[in-house]
Amino acid sequence: MRSVYLDHAASTPVHPEAMEAMLRVMRGQVGNASSIHAFGREAKRTVNAARDTLAAALGCGPDELVFTAGGTESDNLALFGAAAARSHKGRHIITTAIEHHAVLHTCQKLEDNGYQVTYLPVDTYGQVHPEQVAEAITPETILISVMYGNNEVGTLQPIEQIGNLARERGILFHVDAVQAFGAVPFKVKDLPVDLLSVSSHKINGPQGVGALFVRRGISIEPLLFGGLQERKRRAGTENMAGLAGFAKAAEIASCKTVKRRDSEEELRKELIAALEREIGTERFRINGHPTEHLPHILNVSFPECGTETMLMNLDMEGIAVASGSACTSGSLEPSHVLEAMHLPENVLRSAIRFSFGLGNTREDMTYCAEKVGTILNRLRNRR
């Protein structure tokens, strides 16, 4: 049976060059980067080289990066760290209703700790408007957190406008760029952003490695204690092999971002065209912004077939996709993102996320559309 992986927004295959970079470290290095002997100094050089490479890819200074264990920790460190460092100035935070749970759950915990959080609504395309942000700001506002591109529907947010607004008011601005890094071209130095989260396994690097950009001059309180690593901002022995793989993946991604964007946009268009041929436009609906979207994410609802049914049937055909829903107590719950977009119930409960990347072809898109058609026709014939 043919196997097609269309869940790159969840995790990407490791690039062969990133894998080789990791293997070189695992085979040839044993030192701790905090040790002062020769083995430790060699380890430190590996960590520093990874930091330099990632900084070049992001467009920031090496001293502005904090290595973490992934996007979730980066988001947590940004929000908890900035809130603690600025609590003397105020205790109000602004975010959106469609953020990743790494941000939403952190905000809920901050509320438990006495902070006030405003969760901004979005339009039917999943986009927040700068005017809403402006209206939500109070004299107590210390932090705004808005994702670059949504992980479920792919909608891009007006980051520059919101960032400029935050900068004018003297408010810190955090951006979760986990899905955007490597998918759309940007340099942090050109953005009005103070904190920005990225993750290795979304750009064909290893899992369990990430980074937080902290603009020079911005203070954050650490989450982890026990060592002086990362300029006292994140204690813990560095994951040398993971960082080497992350750096190589970032280097490749930064050089090929435009090419990757164009390629994945073509795959996205091909899947839409194939679905139109196989099942007709009246049998599916695309969720998200029609033009302002990440190239590698396509969220589609098939109203005559529930999410779980389509998900399982595609899996049996060898096609891996995602529901865009959280699995709670063994049952699929509606996506908080789609709920925030106020989509009709039949659209909300029939959404599937297709996401593309390394190794996918136009033929994969055709095959996928054909299988969707087969599944829908089979279900229709049973009625």
Rank of each mutant, 00 (worst) to 15 (best):
105 H>F: 12
222 P>E: 13
98 I>Q: 01
268 R>H: 11
371 K>V: 03
143 L>V: 09
44 K>T: 07
138 T>G: 11
22 M>A: 09
363 E>G: 12
34 S>N: 10
353 R>C: 08
275 L>R: 08
183 A>R: 06
275 L>G: 01
343 L>Y: 03
58 L>P: 01
8 H>P: 07
310 M>I: 05
176 D>V: 03
64 E>N: 05
204 N>P: 04
73 E>P: 04
329 S>A: 12
99 E>V: 15
182 G>L: 01
140 E>Q: 14
128 V>T: 12
101 H>D: 11
277 R>Q: 15
165 L>G: 04
149 G>Y: 00
212 L>R: 06
168 E>T: 13
41 R>P: 00
191 L>K: 10
283 R>I: 00
275 L>H: 05
361 T>C: 07
147 M>R: 10
182 G>A: 03
105 H>W: 15
270 E>S: 05
369 A>F: 11
98 I>R: 00
52 D>A: 08
27 R>E: 15
174 H>A: 03
180 A>H: 04
310 M>P: 05
342 H>I: 13
8 H>D: 13
130 P>K: 07
122 V>K: 00
160 E>F: 05
319 I>P: 01
58 L>N: 01
44 K>S: 14
152 E>N: 13
272 I>H: 14
330 G>W: 00
84 A>E: 15
59 G>V: 08
368 C>R: 03
363 E>S: 09
36 I>K: 11
332 L>G: 04
314 L>D: 06
